[in-house]
Design a protein around this nucleic acid. Structure first.
Length: 110
DNA sequence: GAATTGACCAGCT
DNA sequence: AAGCTGGCCAATT
């Protein structure tokens, strides 16, 4: 079975980030800070963003589903406009430049 | 090994 | 409400 993505190029931290991000279901979004908590790195929100900035598989690993704590978009390697379209394409709605709260995902690993 | 860099954040004003 | 500030953290230089 061929893996969906070759994770060997990542550091341990980066790999954790990619995996945590892969858990966000279609049509929902999580924040950088919340994903940081999800991997046990409460204060590493910024580092999470940096890791995602290097994501070589922007669709396979759905980093477009990660937004800022205030629910504004945040960055995207392929352009913030594109990020918004991808999200709208999966049903995520916006109120002004913010994602509707109903779409925020929370998940804590046991 | 220090300094720099960034897709961040909370708390202030 | 919008902008600053200082803090944080991992990768890179």
């Amino acid at each position: 079975m061929k893996p969906k993505a070759d994770l060997s190029v990542f550091s341990d931290f980066e790999r954790e980030v990619m995996l945590a991000v892969s858990e966000i279901p279609r049509g929902r979004v999580a924040t950088y800070a919340e994903r940081a908590r999800a991997i046990g790195r409460e204060k590493a929100a910024r580092a999470v963003g940096n890791a995602l900035a290097k994501n070589p598989y922007p669709i396979v690993i759905p980093c477009h589903r990660v937004v800022k704590a205030d629910l504004r978009l945040g960055g995207y390697s392929l352009g913030a406009d594109n990020k918004k379209k991808l999200l709208e394409g999966e049903g995520v709605r916006f109120i002004g430049d913010r994602v509707r709260h109903g779409h925020v995902f929370k998940f804590y690993r046991s």
